[in-house]
Computed example of a mutant assay.
Amino acid sequence: MSRSTSLRRNVLELQQCRVSPAGCAVQNTLMLVLMMYPCRAGLDNYTELDRVNGWLIERKQAADGALSCRAFLPLGASWFSGNIHLDVSGELVVPAGRSFEGDQQVLEAVREALDRCGSDFLYLPL
């Protein structure tokens, strides 16, 4: 018997729960858990999308499908606005008590990543 035939037979046995009652129970439990908790990554919460020269690019999707992206330097502040970040228009915001000594090329790379983030659902890091 060829290896692919053997593998196909094993997959069919798993699908039909012929392997063991315990294996079948695990498979059924896993399917139940997956169906009970739908994936909500990026829906109404920001999730990490990319890192560009130390800057964190995050995105969320609203219930209506609108994309929202943001970029900031994760410096340990408990709120997004406490970190050095780019505002909605792409301008640098440096909170009181912080300083920024980055160069313009880094900011342009971050702005480009933000533009790509908001332009399409598919984001491919460069």
Score class of each variant (00 low, 15 high):
1 M>R: 07
3 R>D: 10
6 S>C: 10
7 L>H: 00
7 L>M: 02
7 L>D: 07
8 R>K: 15
13 E>P: 00
17 C>Y: 12
19 V>R: 08
20 S>N: 04
21 P>N: 15
22 A>L: 15
23 G>K: 08
24 C>E: 14
24 C>P: 03
25 A>P: 00
28 N>I: 08
32 L>V: 02
36 M>R: 14
39 C>R: 07
43 L>G: 01
47 T>N: 01
49 L>Y: 08
50 D>S: 10
51 R>D: 13
52 V>S: 09
53 N>Y: 02
53 N>E: 15
53 N>R: 09
54 G>D: 09
55 W>Q: 04
56 L>I: 10
57 I>N: 11
59 R>C: 07
59 R>V: 02
63 A>M: 13
65 G>C: 00
65 G>P: 01
67 L>A: 04
70 R>A: 03
71 A>F: 06
72 F>A: 05
73 L>F: 04
75 L>K: 00
75 L>C: 02
78 S>M: 12
79 W>Y: 13
79 W>M: 15
81 S>H: 13
81 S>C: 09
84 I>S: 03
86 L>F: 10
90 G>A: 10
91 E>N: 15
91 E>T: 12
92 L>H: 04
98 R>E: 12
102 G>A: 12
102 G>C: 00
103 D>C: 03
103 D>E: 05
105 Q>H: 04
106 V>I: 14
108 E>I: 04
109 A>C: 05
109 A>L: 14
111 R>I: 03
111 R>N: 02
113 A>L: 04
114 L>Q: 01
115 D>M: 00
116 R>Y: 10
120 D>A: 13
121 F>D: 05
123 Y>D: 12
